[in-house]
Simulated scan of single mutants.
Amino acid sequence: MSATRLLAHAENREWAGSARSALGVAALLPLLLIGVDAAGGQSSPRRALLWIALGLLLLSVLWPTRVRAAPGLLTTHGLLRERHVRTDLLASVDLLAGISPRLLLVDIEGNRLEIDPRVFVSDPPLWYLVNQGIRTSVSRGTIPGGRQSLQRLSHFADGENVRLIFKSSGLL
Rank of each mutant, 00 (worst) to 15 (best):
R13M: 02
S139W: 08
L90R: 02
P117V: 04
L7Y: 07
L126H: 03
R140F: 12
D37E: 14
L129H: 03
V93S: 07
V121T: 15
V36A: 11
G55D: 01
V130P: 04
L7C: 04
P117K: 02
S168E: 15
P64V: 15
A16L: 13
S44C: 07
S100Y: 10
I115D: 02
I99V: 13
S100A: 12
Q148I: 14
L57Q: 02
R152F: 02
R86L: 07
L6Y: 09
A39V: 09
P125F: 01
L62G: 07
L80T: 14
S137H: 05
R118Y: 08
A26Q: 01
T4F: 11
A53K: 01
G78A: 08
R102H: 06
D123H: 08
A70Q: 07
T136V: 10
P64T: 14
R152M: 09
W15M: 01
I115L: 15
G78Y: 08
A70T: 05
V162A: 14
T4N: 08
D123E: 10
D94S: 12
H9A: 15
A16Q: 13
D107Y: 08
I115F: 03
L23I: 12
G17N: 12
E160F: 03
A39N: 04
A27Y: 03
S169G: 04
D94K: 12
L89G: 01
A53Y: 00
W127Y: 11
V25T: 14
L62T: 12
I165D: 10
R68Y: 09
A26R: 00
A19I: 06
I108Y: 02
L150V: 07
R66F: 12
Q151F: 09
L164C: 07
I134H: 02
A157L: 13
L90G: 00
A97Y: 05
G78T: 14
V121D: 05
H155I: 10
S169K: 10
S100D: 11
E14P: 00
S92L: 04
Q151S: 15
S168D: 15
T76N: 05
L6F: 13
S60Q: 07
E82Y: 06
R102F: 02
A10G: 10
A70I: 00
L59I: 09
L171C: 06
L150A: 12
A3G: 04
G98H: 11
L153A: 09
G141S: 06
N161Y: 06
A53F: 03
E109S: 13
G24S: 13
G146R: 05
L7F: 13
R135H: 05
